[in-house]
Amino acid sequence: MTLGRFEYHAPQSIPQAVQLLTQLGPDARVMAGGTDLLVKMRHHVVHPSAIVAIKGIPGLDRIEVDRDHGLTIGAAALLADVATHPQIQALYPAVSGAAQTTANVQVRNMGTVVGNLCNASPAADNAPSLLALEAQVEIQGPRGVRHLPLAAFFKGPGQTALAVDEIVTAVKAPPPRPASAGVYLSLSARGQLDCSAVGVGVVLALENQVCVHARIVIGACAPTPIRVPQAEALLEGRRWHSQTIEQAAGIAASLAQPIDDLRASARYRHRMITVLAQRALVQAGQSAAKK
């Protein structure tokens, strides 16, 4: 159960880290919290020749949140700090809620939101809410800084749009819409500790009991977390009503392509998408109506 041998680098700036990645080539891995990477190494899934640890880079753990500028979560910001951040809880409850339901206390004290995204598990708990918020990732590489919609970042299980010499430095969500609310709900065998069998993130805005904006994203039921635009379209422009919510949840389930695996059967997943989507929509609707 020991780890294979590797070189360890702890650069003090992003340009230094990028330079190291360029020099070290494709066998090097970026490490933030290490809670995914070290487990994969221990299970001999990956064998990096070098680790570039970015957690100690000053300022990379930044969390900036306000109503006018939106949300920025730096690559080294811990899941625990995002989960308990009072302003994130107030303005982006789906984001803090998802961080809180990721793994356990110890892992939240080590792991990061951005690391969870970069690991690109279809079941990544922090992906659905950030996708529903139309978040972007900030990427730095030898060619400078670029921004990519999170939806274009996920390419498949464990696959992202990141080049080997690039680092995700932050994930950013736009300012919250007026009278909007979000919720993330997930199901897994062992409370919320192990990987989710189903996760649903929703963000919606209501005006005079009419839904003016809806985003629904399902995790763990396709090769990447997926948006379900047909379900959103059914809600948008219509009066907020339990029957429409039920129909939208049903459509969401019909658009997912869950598989049978050790965490749940495809059939169970199908049924639970409907249940979770309905619950998430009802809860988000109640919060949005209060705003």
Partner: peptide, 19 residues
């Protein structure tokens, strides 16, 4: 394997000593 590092509880099996 839980230990405290500074003021946080962490899994010592997933923490590199060098870090």
């Amino acid at each position: 394997c839980t230990v405290m590092v500074d003021d946080r509880s962490v899994s010592s099996c997933l923490t590199l000593a060098v870090a």
